[in-house]
Design a protein around this nucleic acid. Structure first.
Lengths: 209, 209
DNA sequence: ACCTGAACACCGTTCAAGT
DNA sequence: ACCTGAACACCGTTCAAGT
């Protein structure tokens, strides 16, 4: 069973009227901006509220505390990422294995690179204890999608789908993150990406028929 | 040029007498304990000082602020890790490629697993902006050691050592970290580790003579 | 050379009062 | 149903006084 997020991490109330939906959206956007400008440590509730154009009290109607705000932002980001990966997996259903891996790497890579500043800001914001729940939920969702995709490959037979799946997903996700943290040059990043593909393909050759 | 840590991150003064060396050591140890017990967000300067058996004022004689304290802890950890990796690289100089990769994976894996609680606590503590400098310095050091090791392999010729080196180090480090964050079972971890080795070996086959 | 801890400023959070 | 912002408690940081 996946750990559910602690109650203190959940939004205090759900926006009902249109006005409040706009407010919550503004708070999210302001949080990203402040995170990019000041970093996690200098992010104050006041600065977020100010940038969002609302009072602190309003913020606290939707988020029980500062952590919950950042938590919700991460949840949003991971959800968007999961949606994209699921889409890729659906598209690649029944394709040859090598193509699947390339599509998967492409999706991860693009998701991290497109808005690199936001990715970086979020990586930095993950100071909190209780994002374990987030990570697990995300991993479970993505693992399911990719496992199904790999099972559908016409040119391969897996004795142990979950194992091969775990290996691929962990290597790809971990490598992309590490590459990102290193702040590689465009050329180095391109080379690395190609080498990553080579490794995954070499690994998959064990299962091809 | 590697980014140097911002001055506010550096220790305020260096312990000279024996008494103060003990004090600083106690502060480091207390920081780990509090980090493990309360997490980064509930870590207060008072709680660290109390656990270390000193006053807050004393803490501020050696660390200019709270961030610097956690920063120094990370620096220490990364230094210890780099020392171990460098040792492995020296030991493996001139060995066959496959053995090198296995030794490298073993070293990373062991370093992260031995004191898993501390590793986790430190991962969580990395909320700060300025650990980029730390990461870069660490990466540079480790990259140099592994590149030299790979160059010394008797059974391989690399057209582009830095590139192959980057691919291997990024994949290994990233994968170990991701595996760690997922909190895998012992069996799953063992399988993954073996698969990681398989991938690296398959990649290296491109360079063997 | 090193340590103490009361004092200050600032930030997270609340809540009575508003539309 | 939603918003405001002054008020309170607590934490990071300092500094005068100590050994």
């Amino acid at each position: 069973m996946p750990p559910s997020p602690p109650t203190t991490m959940q939004p205090r109330k759900t926006p009902i009227q249109n006005r409040s939906r706009v407010t919550v959206e503004a708070i999210y956007e302001a949080t990203i901006q402040v995170l990019l400008r000041d970093g996690m440590n200098d992010l104050t509730t006041t600065s977020v509220a100010e940038r969002a154009g609302v009072s602190v009290g309003t913020m606290y109607q939707y988020f029980p505390n500062k952590q919950a705000l950042v938590y919700a932002l991460n949840a949003r980001y991971l959800d968007a990422l999961a949606v994209r990966i699921e889409a890729t997996c659906r598209e690649q259903s029944g394709a040859p294995l090598g193509q699947m891996v390339e599509a998967l790497i492409e999706t991860y890579w693009a998701a991290k690179t497109e808005r690199a500043d936001v990715t970086r800001a979020l990586y930095r914001s993950v100071a909190e204890l209780n994002n374990d729940a987030l990570i697990h939920a995300f991993a479970e969702r993505v693992d399911r999608a990719t496992a199904e995709m790999f099972s559908s490959a016409r040119d391969a037979v897996f004795a142990d789908v979950p194992r091969a799946n775990l290996a691929l997903v962990t290597v790809i996700y971990g490598t992309v993150r590490n590459a990102f943290e290193r702040g590689l040059s465009t050329q180095a990043a391109a080379d690395l990406r190609q080498d990553l593909t080579t490794m995954c393909r070499a690994y998959l050759a064990n299962f091809s028929v």
